[in-house]
Structure formats: structure tokens, C-alpha cells
């Protein structure tokens, strides 16, 4: 199956050919895959410039796409996201690869599980965490046609099938009063496996900002237990759940990548298991929280 990353490059090439508004700015990562085009600017290993150039292109009416690994797209030029794009009120599509621990062998320098929390801390960003390559297709094309600030987080982890819509989707209904388990992006696979014999409502979300407060509240119904499974920093959306349920008693278990350095190499699946985000880990957490 085509990876999310490959699909992104295909769509970027297509968009450059078909939409004269679209421009792509890279900083060595993905440069050859996007290929040569008069509106593809590779600025070398200069990520601050990459975002500044994207802002300049947006100011001239273009729809810029900037791309790199999560730490180099979000953390290195973070102030450029805040000011060149945000404060200047300019739009861009930022597409990251590497997610939280796809670059497991590369180590901490190539990992940024805090990316979504950082982008979400800035006003006006739409954040997509697709769980399947076909969702990338829909979300990316939509973002290219839009004018706003959009962050799309690609991963090697993928669900077995796409979920249409990108918004809050209830996939399985538990009995009234049962817990709501909300799986974000590629956590859906392990969440479904971990909940197969459990009485719980399971919902899916690929677009985490703006957060769907009303939909979460509706899906919880008369229940009071919420489990959030996010493939990045644990608790990134906890405050959003608190807002959604601010006037009613509830309990929240926020699963995600712990805010600690693992200091291990290896593979993505090994990291997922170490963080308790594989099916067995999620099942253990659910047992403990819901017993």
C-alpha cells in the first residue's frame, strides 16, 4: 500500500501542475520526491527560512505547502509559525512526517511527540491527524483549496481502513452510560482491538483542532467516563475534553506518548508498545481505569 508520505508527494506534484496558486517549500526533506517545478522552492537545510518564505508566498496570494520531519517543521521554526504565519494572518499547509516515533532508530532529535500540543497552542490552526492514506488524500486536497493555517501530521502507523469525514465519527455504540473511547488517527487500530469485548462507545477523530466539543458530549450521552487515545503527547486534548464537559462530572483517562525521554532506538512498534499505545497496553489501561 502507498504510504501517507508517498501519497503526499503525489498530491503535491499534481497540485503544482494543476493549481497555479499552489507552491511547495522544502528544506532538503522530500525535495527530490516533490521534484523540480517552477513553484517548488527548496531552500536547503534552513527551516526558519522555509516558513518565512511560505508566509511571503502566502502574502502574494499563493497557497504554500511546507514540509519536513515533525521537529524541523514545528519546533525549529516555531516562532515563524507564531509570527510569520499567525500574527501576520497568513495561511499555509504544513505537512509533517515522522509523527511521534516513526524515526525510532534516529532517536530523540528526529522525534516530536509534542508537535500537536505546540501547534494547538497557537490560535487559528486546523490540525489533521489522518489514520489512513486515503484520509490524507481527502484532508490534503481540502487544505490546498482552503486559505487557512493547516497542520497535517502524517505517520507510518496506519489503520486497516479509512474512516470518511475526518470529523468525529461514532464507530460502535456501547450501552447507555458506558465509557466513550475516542481514538485519534492511527490509534484506531489498537483501540478497536483493545475494546472488542468491552461495552464501550468507540469514536474516531482525524481532525483534532478545532476540537468537536458538542459531538463528544453527545456521544458520551449519560456516561461519565472518557478515554482519549492520542498518538502524540499524552493529554494534548485533555483541556478540550474538559471544555466539552465543563458543567458535568466526568472522569478522563488520557493515553498518549508520556512526557519523558524513552532513550531507546529500535522500531516504531516497539516504541508504541513501550508507551502503552499498542492494543495490549490500551487494554491494560482500560482495565485499570474502568474496573
Amino acid at each position: 500500500m502507498t504510504s501517507m508520505r508517498q501519497r503526499f508527494y503525489e498530491i503535491a506534484r499534481e497540485a503544482l501542475d494543476e493549481d497555479e496558486r499552489v507552491a511547495v517549500v522544502t528544506a532538503q526533506i522530500g525535495t527530490d520526491s516533490v521534484g523540480e517545478h517552477p513553484r517548488h522552492f527548496d531552500v536547503g537545510i534552513r527551516e526558519q527560512l522555509m516558513i518565512g518564505v511560505a508566509a511571503g508566498l502566502a502574502a502574494e496570494g499563493y497557497r504554500p505547502v511546507a514540509h519536513s520531519y515533525t521537529p524541523f517543521l514545528v519546533e525549529r521554526p516555531y516562532e515563524m509559525l507564531k509570527l510569520d504565519l499567525g500574527h501576520n494572518d497568513l495561511g499555509a499547509v504544513l505537512v509533517s512526517i515522522g509523527a511521534s516515533y516513526d524515526a525510532a532508530r534516529e532517536g530523540r532529535t528526529h522525534q516530536a511527540p509534542e508537535d500537536v500540543a505546540l501547534v494547538a497552542a497557537l490560535p487559528g490552526w486546523t490540525i489533521h491527524v489522518p489514520g489512513h492514506v486515503d484520509e490524507v488524500d481527502v484532508l490534503l486536497r481540502h487544505a490546498l483549496a482552503d486559505d487557512g493555517r493547516v497542520y497535517i501530521r502524517l505517520s507510518e502507523e496506519t489503520n486497516h481502513a479509512r474512516v470518511d469525514g475526518g470529523g468525529f465519527t461514532v464507530l460502535r455504540r456501547g450501552s447507555p452510560g458506558s465509557a466513550l473511547v475516542l481514538a485519534v488517527g492511527p490509534t484506531l487500530g489498537p483501540v478497536l482491538e483493545a475494546t472488542v469485548e468491552r461495552d464501550a462507545t468507540v469514536a474516531y477523530l482525524a481532525t483534532v483542532r478545532p476540537f468537536p466539543h458538542g459531538e463528544l458530549r453527545d456521544a458520551l450521552g449519560s456516561g461519565s467516563d472518557v478515554v482519549l487515545a492520542e498518538p502524540y503527547l499524552a493529554g494534548t486534548s485533555s483541556a478540550e475534553v474538559a471544555v466539552a464537559l465543563q458543567d458535568r462530572p466526568h472522569r478522563l483517562l488520557a493515553l498518549g506518548v508520556p512526557n519523558a525521554e524513552l532513550r531507546r532506538y529500535g522500531t516504531g512498534p516497539e516504541h508504541r508498545a513501550a508507551h502503552g499505545l499498542d492494543a495490549a497496553g490500551i487494554a491494560r489501561s482500560l482495565d485499570s481505569f474502568l474496573s
Binding site: V25, L49, G52, V53, G56, L57, A59, E60, M80, D84
Partner: peptide, 10 residues
């Protein structure tokens, strides 16, 4: 200067 560069690229 980076933003000006982006504008000038057009």
C-alpha cells in the same frame, strides 16, 4: 528578510 524573500520569489 525571509518573508521578503518569499514575496520576491514570485
Amino acid at each position: 528578510l525571509a518573508v521578503a524573500t518569499g514575496r520576491a520569489l514570485t
